[in-house]
Design a protein around this nucleic acid. Structure first.
Lengths: 132, 132
DNA sequence: AATAATCATCTAAATAATTAAAAGATGCTT
DNA sequence: AAGCATCTTTTAATTATTTAGATGATTATT
């Protein structure tokens, strides 16, 4: 037997989604150009088409014929993908404990003072909401 | 051309690491048993050996001969792997903004009131540390 | 000593992911 | 109409990941 297709976008798929979340619909040629410019990933035209078609098959993208070429757009929302990937890591790495995940983030990254203040405000807000 | 080996453990590799982080060193047979019990993943003995050897080659594990069988232990710390995977998601999904990542976590998961209070305390603590 | 039990290594397979050339189709230009 | 430009489809090659059988080695048992 072998592995199963991931429900989340892979490395390259995410880069392509980022391009299209930023602006869409776009033709292949444009996606290719932005992938090189934004993600420093210069792929051949045919490689980009292959990936976009795979992503279409997987249900990540929408495809529409415009004249002789296809235009691609995201079918999945950024928030949904992001949330899914976070949830995946949350369950696989932190056994489903959001606070453990947060703690890790606090300890391993460098967050600015102003952002810390902002976060504290958000947490206070969240705590209030829970009370109702 | 093709893809490159990930610097982070894969799905299955992480499950194996979890077993060994929990207790080590362990012989293959024991790893196999716990993988089935803890992760509900019943693999053939030879499959487990194959994976453990691959992980040894990748530098995730240490291997020591004890009598006729091998004992495996983690070579990488849990904190290091966790931090690496978090950092990966942080840069790939949230463009390196920890506060954006935190915000997502706050909004998409359900954190208990007591944990929220704990987190607020930690953030306050962190803010103080930054002042020095 | 012969046999069984237990391990490891070798080999192999199937699917996923990534990259791209070659071939085919279609429309544009001169 | 011929040729060029531009797209898509088809085909293929390579590495990674996951799973496991077959084979061989070593130790324990009868």
């Amino acid at each position: 037997m072998a592995r199963t297709e991931s429900e989340h976008p892979t490395e390259l798929e995410l880069e392509l989604l980022k391009v299209l979340w930023d602006e869409s619909p776009l033709p292949v040629r444009e996606v290719r150009a932005r992938l090189e410019a934004d993600a420093n990933r210069p792929l051949a035209h045919s490689s980009v088409i292959t990936m976009l078609n795979i992503m279409h098959r997987k249900g990540f993208l929408r495809r529409r014929k415009e004249g002789k070429s296809f235009l691609f757009s995201p079918k999945v929302k950024k928030e949904s993908v992001t949330g899914g990937m976070m949830g995946d890591l949350l369950s696989r790495v932190f056994d489903g404990s959001p606070s453990a995940m947060m703690l890790n983030l606090l300890e391993t990254t460098d967050i600015g003072a102003d952002e810390l203040a902002e976060l504290r405000k958000l947490i206070t807000q969240k705590a209030k909401e829970r009370k109702q």
